[in-house]
Amino acid sequence: MRKMENSRLFKLWMVVSTLIVLISVGFIIGYIVLNGIKSISLDFIISSPKGLPLGSEGGILPAIVGSLLLMLIACGFASFLALATAIYVVFYCQSSQIENIVHIIVQCMAGVPSIVIGLFGYTFLVAKLGLGRSLLSAGLTLGVMVFPFIEVRIEKSLQEFSTAALQSSYALGVSKAYTLFKLVLPQCKEDIVAAITLAGGFAMGATAPIILTGAVIFAPIPSSLSSPVMALPFHLYILTGEGISLEKAYATALVLITLIFAINIISIALTSRRKEVGS
């Protein structure tokens, strides 16, 4: 009798929690879609902010392009480092002490508040290295933020690779590098790409790291790595924070959410394809 009650309570807890989450997420998205869809037009997507104050009219093209470029730089930089770190830890590191130290560092990095990472980017990249407030500084700062996110996922995927198959490969006298490039990485490719895309969505939505390092209220589409850049989340922050235009803010939020949503769907599609092939 007691057991039945417990399991009923447990079920209730699950159902209620799920409903609360679904309803609130649905409400947020629905609200933004309803309010934003009115101001969305082709013109909004393909033109620059206009009007006085700036942004009250016109579109958000430079912010869309800026956000995508920031994402590319962040993902490129972070995955370059993360892939190497994960491969080192899983396949080359002989000492478990070093492995632990790397894990602790990665975990600490994941826990650093994004505004602190932004301040780090400002002092180190913008001021010390003299890169200025630019697309490059902001992209690299975002890269620092998503690095642990990518590294942990790639490492997990590499770790899951069959030990027996690895041993068999080494037993044929084949080198570690060949084993990695011909056997392990092709098998983990989807997981790796999925981790990077997911991180891209994360990077695109982040505001704190870019406020001080490169995002500006208005800039044309960046012409080089050293130009300042507009970004969707920062533009959104300005539109609402300065009370410029609530309508445009909803529309901007809608565009941002749609982009992140699309990126996540790509990532999920990649992971599930991997599972089908693997079975």
């Binding site: 027996a164 198959a165 080494y170 037993a171 044929l172 084949v174 693997g278």
Partner: peptide
């Protein structure tokens, strides 16, 4: 590596590559 090429081994559990 040369030893491993000239002296092959097959393990207890079948371990084909994926």
């Amino acid at each position: 590596e040369e030893i491993r090429r000239r002296i092959g081994i097959v393990f207890q559990k079948p371990s084909p590559f994926p």
